[in-house]
Amino acid sequence: MAKHSDAAAGGTPATMALTAAGIRFLPHAYAHDPANTNFGTEAATMLGLDPEQVFKTLLADVDGSLVVAIVPVTGMLDLRALARAVGGKKAVMADPAVAQRKTGYIVGGISPIGQKTPHPTVLDETAELYASIFVSGGRRGFDIELAPADLIAVTNGRVAAIAKE
């Protein structure tokens, strides 16, 4: 993977954070269809990728605190497993308006990187099956390819089994 400048990579808070941290990534832009609300599957299709390698960023409320969960677009978030992964008791999906306000990104373009307010982050363990994975780059129609270990490093996250079929 090459290292890209902010301008070449789309200039989002995610790309700026990666560049500032010296993390290698590849930007992947595609034409987003505004009628499509299945953002992760759209990214996989438009970029010609294995959907198991494309991850979606979700926010959950765990015992009153927001937590970022990153799971394959082909699966669903296991809320109980997420709560356990961060030492909590109960998790529910965060309100989309709260997610947007706290991350600084719009739904469908929420990146786990460069969020306005940092939150505990958990990446599903299946990410470690790949040399690189794809996550939102901070806007609809823009994904970032990077190594799972680099995603964990830049988000100060952890890996756990948080996805279900």
Rank of each mutant, 00 (worst) to 15 (best):
M1Q: 04
A2H: 09
A2D: 14
K3G: 11
A9W: 09
G10C: 04
T12A: 07
P13L: 00
A14K: 02
A14Q: 01
T15A: 07
G22M: 10
G22W: 14
R24D: 12
L26M: 11
P27W: 12
A29G: 11
A29E: 14
A29Y: 14
Y30W: 12
A35Y: 15
T37K: 12
N38I: 09
N38R: 15
N38D: 10
F39S: 06
T41R: 13
E42K: 14
A44I: 08
A44R: 08
A44C: 05
A44K: 01
T45E: 11
T45D: 02
L49P: 03
D50P: 03
Q53A: 07
V54T: 02
K56S: 02
L58P: 08
L59F: 10
L59Y: 05
L59K: 01
V62H: 00
V62A: 01
V62E: 03
D63L: 04
V67H: 02
A69P: 05
A69T: 12
I70D: 04
I70E: 03
P72Y: 04
P72D: 02
V73I: 15
T74A: 08
G75S: 09
M76V: 11
L77G: 00
A85M: 04
V86T: 01
V86M: 03
G88I: 08
K90P: 04
K90T: 10
V92Q: 08
V92L: 15
V98R: 11
V98F: 07
Q100W: 00
K102A: 15
I106A: 11
I106S: 13
S111Q: 04
S111H: 05
I113K: 01
T117E: 08
P118F: 07
H119T: 07
P120D: 08
T121S: 11
V122I: 03
E125H: 06
T126M: 04
A127P: 05
A127D: 02
I133Y: 02
I133K: 01
G138V: 00
G138E: 01
R139P: 01
R140C: 03
R140Q: 15
R140S: 11
G141H: 06
F142S: 04
I144D: 02
A149G: 07
A149F: 03
A153D: 09
A153C: 08
A153G: 07
V154L: 11
T155Q: 02
G157Y: 00
A160F: 03
A161E: 07
A163L: 00
A163Q: 00
K164H: 10
E165V: 13
